[in-house]
Amino acid sequence: MSSTDIVLVRNLLKVYKGGTRAVDGIDFAVQPGEFFGLLGPNGAGKTTTIKILSTLLKKTSGEVRVAGYDIDRDPLSVRKSIGFAMQSVGLDDLSTGRDFLMLQGLLYGLSAAEARSRVEELLDLVGLASVAKRKVGTYSGGMRRRIDLVAALIHRPPLLLLDEPTTGLDPQSRLAIWDYLAHLNEQGVTILLTTQMMEEADRLCRRIAIIDRGLIVAEGSPDALKADIGGDVIHVTVASKDEALTDGMLEKARSLVGSRSYVREATISGDGLTLKTADSSAAVPDLIRVLDENQISATSISVDSPTLDDVFLLHTGRSIRAEETSGGESDLAVRSMLGLGRRE
């Protein structure tokens, strides 16, 4: 951490009423020009953290400086220095796209002439000029994301905060936003985004912090974090050749291959094993042989480079994907049906 950090977070704690420690004493810093990501599953503390940075939410304790300003002592200067596109896109549905952006410009201190020119520039940039006269409430999901994003940029802030900017978008819209964000970062805008999508973090962020249950469990560039795993990841699906030996077969398979010298770590996942190995080319033939000698068939084998999910697994013992499928998404769907929005 240095005096040049555009974001500086030290021992940040947020305890909600009822005692939930949403953020449990985290530290991180972001340098000007960086593309930094907070990666974690639902409920990890990402939205709480980014809302505190934006001055929308009060912290319980800790130090937070944004663009050189203390968020408690000088919140107005912080708000002038940031653009924040929230997870729940907050738009004025009864306003036209142009009027919505125009008001944003005026509220951020632009003169009427400056705001008019900036609005047209941004509408052109994100391909919404042709629908600028339509009410925002009639826009598609992708259009809503785009106008929300450029609304956050209306005053040319040096720091852009994005809370899950592509959640819920179709792949085409997601790719368009990713390209635009990469372009913005190349133009010198510092970006801090939260995401639960490993692909998003991997593709966009030069540095990420993996956050889980209010704690940062790992931090570094995606490549460095994946390199920490060492070598490749082998996924092997197994079946017993002898039906009588089906019980405990997975545990037996894990025990057999886990003791091989080339296997760094072996975990049971679904109906197979996930193995971390430094040398997959030597591992695969031996793996098949060892299992076969013990009446276990390897019904499928795949060798992958490590992903950020593997990094998350390494540091938390759980998978982000498993977290999302086991509860996160279904919980989100139920909350959405009830009109409750997303929970952090």
Binding site: S54, T55, L56, V89, G90, L91, D93, L107, G109, G339
Partner: peptide, 16 residues
Amino acid sequence: TDILSGYFDKLLLAPI
């Protein structure tokens, strides 16, 4: 309506 749509938060984010 403004609170639930998130627009109220957007206004609170403005340096006003």
